[in-house]
């Protein structure tokens, strides 16, 4: 079943990379001391490409993912998303871009505890102003696509870890993003669930022609990427 058609109206061209990261830096000041977490990150991600970001703990993987997801602002460098320099964008535009163009899959799922699977998948569409009936139909379609058609009305605590991550995946796909950012998506799952999640993530991304950037420690996950970007002390190799 095709569930992730690209959103119309995006100025996509085959030649331009979806992500264009150049000299990206991020430092924090803690008790007056400056800590450089990202020193120089430069790489591109094409549309539909699957990229794994690997590196040791503290190498800046999650910080980089936060910058790519427009959850944080870089200290220097530039980050182009879909041809737009995001470092110059205001908060409102960044929120809209995040909602329309980026889907997140978190290690800890981050589902809303008191909502059903159906409602959780519908949240990005609520934020996007999708009418109720269309929202419900789309959420149902996505949950069926990830094999949870029978758990529509279950709440997160009634689902296994693998099922929760599939709900999170369906949620990430709900607005047909051009980029899916996955932060250790299998980190909290057993081997069988990990494999299933990765299968579905890559399958749905392929159907929707979405690029995937996955941060992982797991070599098995990295193996399945088209390309691996390694971070060492805040620098891409």
């Amino acid at each position: 079943m095709s569930v992730g058609a690209p959103s119309p109206g995006s100025p996509r061209t085959a030649a331009a990379p979806l992500l264009d990261v150049r000299g990206l830096t991020r430092h924090f000041t803690v008790s007056g001391a400056r800590i450089d977490v990202l020193r120089d990150c430069t790489f591109q991600v094409a549309r539909g490409e699957v990229v794994a970001i690997v590196g040791q703990s503290g190498s800046g993987k999650s910080t980089l993912l936060n910058l790519l997801g427009l959850l944080d602002r870089p200290s220097g460098g530039s980050y182009g998303f879909d041809g737009e320099d995001t470092t110059r964008l205001g908060e409102g535009r960044r929120s809209r871009l995040r909602g329309e163009g980026i889907g997140f899959v978190f290690q800890q799922f981050h589902l809303l505890e008191r909502r059903t699977a159906l409602a959780n998948v519908g949240v990005p569409m609520v934020l996007g102003g999708v009418p109720l009936l269309r929202r419900r139909a789309r959420a149902r379609e996505l949950l069926e696509a990830v094999g949870l058609g029978h758990r529509l009305h279950s709440r997160p605590h009634q689902l296994s870890g693998g099922e929760q991550q599939r709900v999170a995946l369906a949620r990430a796909l709900s607005r047909s993003p051009s980029l899916i950012l996955a932060d250790e998506p299998t980190g909290a799952l057993d081997a069988a669930s990990s494999a299933m999640i990765m299968d579905q993530l890559l399958e749905q991304a392929r159907i929707g022609e979405a690029a995937v950037v996955v941060v992982t420690h797991d070599p098995k996950v990295a193996e399945r990427a088209d390309r691996v970007v390694e971070l060492v002390e805040g620098r891409t190799l």
Binding site: G69, L71, E91, G92, S95, R96, R98, G99, E100, F104, H110, L112, E113, V123, P124, L127, G128, R171, R175
Partner: peptide, 16 residues
């Protein structure tokens, strides 16, 4: 905090 941060990550603007 986590729930509200999740909303923001999913595209909620500050106004929303």
């Amino acid at each position: 905090r986590r729930e509200l941060a999740t909303y923001r990550a999913l595209g909620a603007s500050r106004t929303t």
